[in-house]
């Protein structure tokens, strides 16, 4: 009788936790998934102790549309990216020509950073992609966090498995570990700073550590963020990408 009770309480607990895991992710998605976003970003790419800085401006609308344009350094100035759905184009000013970035190239690093093209363009609700499991409470950087494990429930995800630590107070992920299907840790994301914009807490300083390479990480700092603002549709066209 007692063992049955214990069993029942375990079952109850785990279902409660599962529920709360999903609830937590819903809160996170509320913060990080936006209907539209415009920003100015700085990329600090650190490779073997050397740091290179790049700056770009970007616009995102929903999960379908995203546009980026590099403004510095001079070498990369005028390099633009447009992503519509699963397709992406790159325009290099010096060449005055746009080329389509095929699917396999999307996985490659963006401008030498530890972000891949679709890491940057990612704006999808985690609850739609992953099965969420609540693991427990953990302390990261002196912050009390919910620890969750996310396993892909649809085949079309970038990372099959994620571990994420979410700050209890503001539902911002503090640390995310991204795993390959084999279970190998590929990248670690640390969200260092966030800003309260309207009702949302939006991450503004993110460090992406490439776990497969020694001493490489990239810092992404977002400035001048505007959330849910109206971005003209013409931005997400090839004509705008190829403008002189």
């Amino acid at each position: 009788m007692i063992s049955k009770l214990i069993l029942l309480s375990f079952a109850l607990c785990s279902s409660l936790f599962a529920q709360s895991g999903l609830e937590i992710i819903k809160q996170v998605d509320k913060n990080t998934v936006v209907s539209s976003l415009s920003y100015r970003a700085r990329l600090l790419i650190s490779l073997g102790g050397k740091i290179r800085e790049k700056e770009f401006i970007g616009y995102t609308r929903g999960k379908e549309y995203s546009y980026m344009e590099f403004v510095s350094p001079a070498r990369d100035k005028g390099t633009r990216f447009l992503k519509i759905g699963d397709e992406m184009w790159m325009y290099i000013h010096a060449v005055e020509k746009s080329t389509k970035i095929a699917g396999h190239m999307l996985r490659q690093s963006m401008m030498g950073s530890d972000f891949s093209y679709d890491d940057v363009a990612e704006n999808e609700k985690l609850q739609d992609l992953y099965e969420i499991e609540f693991i427990g409470i953990d302390t990261i950087n002196n912050k009390e966090c919910y620890k969750l494990e996310l396993t892909a429930k649809v085949p079309e995800v970038n990372y099959y498995f994620r571990k994420t630590w979410i700050d209890k107070r503001n539902y911002i992920p503090v640390k995310i570990e991204l795993y390959a299907k084999s279970g190998k840790l590929m990248k670690e994301v640390n969200i260092i700073e966030f800003k309260k914009i309207g009702k949302k807490n939006y991450p503004t300083k993110i460090i992406m550590i490439n776990k497969l390479r020694k001493d490489t990480f990239t810092e992404l700092i977002l400035e001048d963020i505007e959330l849910d603002s109206k971005i003209p549709s013409k931005v997400f066209t090839k004509a705008y990408l190829e403008r002189k």
Binding site: G103, L106, R107, N158, Y159, A180, K181, K184, M186
Partner: peptide, 12 residues
């Protein structure tokens, strides 16, 4: 490091 046919990262 590669991506499977659905686009999910794989490292082995």
């Amino acid at each position: 490091i590669t991506r499977d046919r659905h686009g999910t990262y794989e490292a082995y």
